[in-house]
Computed example of a mutant assay.
Amino acid sequence: MTFHLDLDIAAPAGRVFDFVADFTTMPRWYSAVRRVERVGGAGGLGTRYEVYRDLPGGPPATKCRSPHTWRARRSPSPR
């Protein structure tokens, strides 16, 4: 899965990168994210996070553990 977004931000590139690369700031810039919890690591390469999101029409909660795990909890479909 790939997300792509283009924005013009009036700040130095390094500062923007550091902010976005810190997963704990995700609820501040991605409205679908309710909260982020660090579950392993010190915040650098190899750190694992759980990301809790609300998406229209999607599962009520998803979990993302960097670098390779993505889980979604689904409700039964209405019949």
Rank of each mutant, 00 (worst) to 15 (best):
V16H: 01
V33L: 14
T25R: 10
L5V: 15
R74Y: 08
V39E: 09
T47M: 01
A10C: 10
P56W: 04
V20N: 05
P56Y: 05
L55R: 09
G43I: 02
G57V: 02
M1I: 01
R74S: 10
F19T: 02
L7S: 08
F17T: 06
F17L: 11
R35V: 00
H4R: 15
R15W: 04
T69H: 07
W70G: 07
P67I: 06
D8H: 14
R53P: 02
R38M: 15
P56G: 02
F17Y: 12
T69M: 10
D22E: 08
L5A: 15
A32T: 06
S75P: 01
A42D: 15
Y52H: 13
M26L: 08
M26V: 03
G46S: 03
R73S: 11
P27R: 05
V16I: 10
G41E: 01
R73L: 10
Y30C: 11
L7R: 15
E37L: 11
E50R: 10
E37D: 13
T69Q: 11
R79Y: 06
G44C: 04
R38A: 12
R15D: 10
G14A: 12
A13E: 10
G41L: 04
V36N: 00
G46E: 00
S75T: 14
L45A: 14
P56Q: 05
D8S: 12
